[in-house]
Design a binder for these strands. Structure first.
Lengths: 140, 140
DNA sequence: CACTTGATTCGACATTCGTCAACATAGATG
DNA sequence: CATCTATGTTGACGAATGTCGAATCAAGTG
């Protein structure tokens, strides 16, 4: 284990909220239960689900997401039973899928979750509330 | 299109709720952001994500989930651009993953969503609230 | 029973995926 | 600069996946 000082990001991932900078948090698709997905919507959403459709990737992602401040360096999470290149490969996949972002600080590379996308996926699996409450927070 | 009479299931999928019979709705794993997944948890959860990780399956699932009463016969949803055997193949995968259940009524086979599992997946992607509120039991 | 429509199974195939070993690169340290 | 540690990249290979056509099964209809 490494467990060096992580830049204590006090921000604790306000995922289900719209990003604090005002961005709309990956407006990919409506909830799965709202209407049949179009081919394009399905393509987009499937890419995200597929990224989490591997046990190793899920463990890596969970490790990052549950880490202090929602970020961790590779050395802190690479104990998942596969070789180092494989870990790197999976992290790249998660990054390509838009679920993680990486940043190099000195010797180590830190990965952190992309709150907006996680929120979008959560919304996908959420049933539309009985009453038609809309507006996910004004674009201000 | 077929669009025969569907047994008008007025029940509208109370997914994010625990099942009305009191069952805990597929207690597979904690939220992804709560703690690193174990190998077993990851295996279980990844199976579900993988099932939705294909565009065709996602469209089929969405079509079923958004249909009246949360169920639909194959003929109503098989217009996704692939052959009939392929549709059947994907539906079987969704069924094997526990996301759909099927039932034959006369000539047609009806698929419906498995609310508990969808709810479990939704919980996976939900962040634990910022303040250390613990109990999974909702604050009403 | 013969015929039609719809759903599933089977066999085959090309593609993608997960994995590793070997090598390459970035930064730190001496 | 030499060297060490931490990550990323490349190439290869077996396994799994998505797809189809043909055959088969199930139910309804004449």
């Amino acid at each position: 284990m490494c467990q060096h000082r992580y830049v204590s990001n006090t921000r604790v991932l306000a995922l289900l909220d719209s990003a604090d900078d005002g961005t709309v948090a990956a407006p990919c698709c409506p909830p799965l239960t709202e209407r049949p997905f179009s081919a394009e919507e399905a393509e987009t959403a499937a890419r995200m689900f597929k990224a989490l459709g591997d046990p190793v990737r899920l463990r890596l992602f969970s490790a990052v997401a549950s880490h202090e401040g929602g970020e961790a360096c590779v050395c802190d999470i690479s104990d998942v039973g596969v070789s180092q290149p494989t870990v790197s490969h999976h992290l790249k996949k998660l990054k390509d899928a838009g679920l993680l972002a990486s940043e190099r600080r000195g010797t180590w590379v830190y990965y952190r979750v992309e709150p907006a996308v996680l929120a979008a996926m959560g919304r996908l699996l959420t049933v539309t509330p009985p009453v038609g409450r809309q507006g996910p927070a004004g674009p201000a």
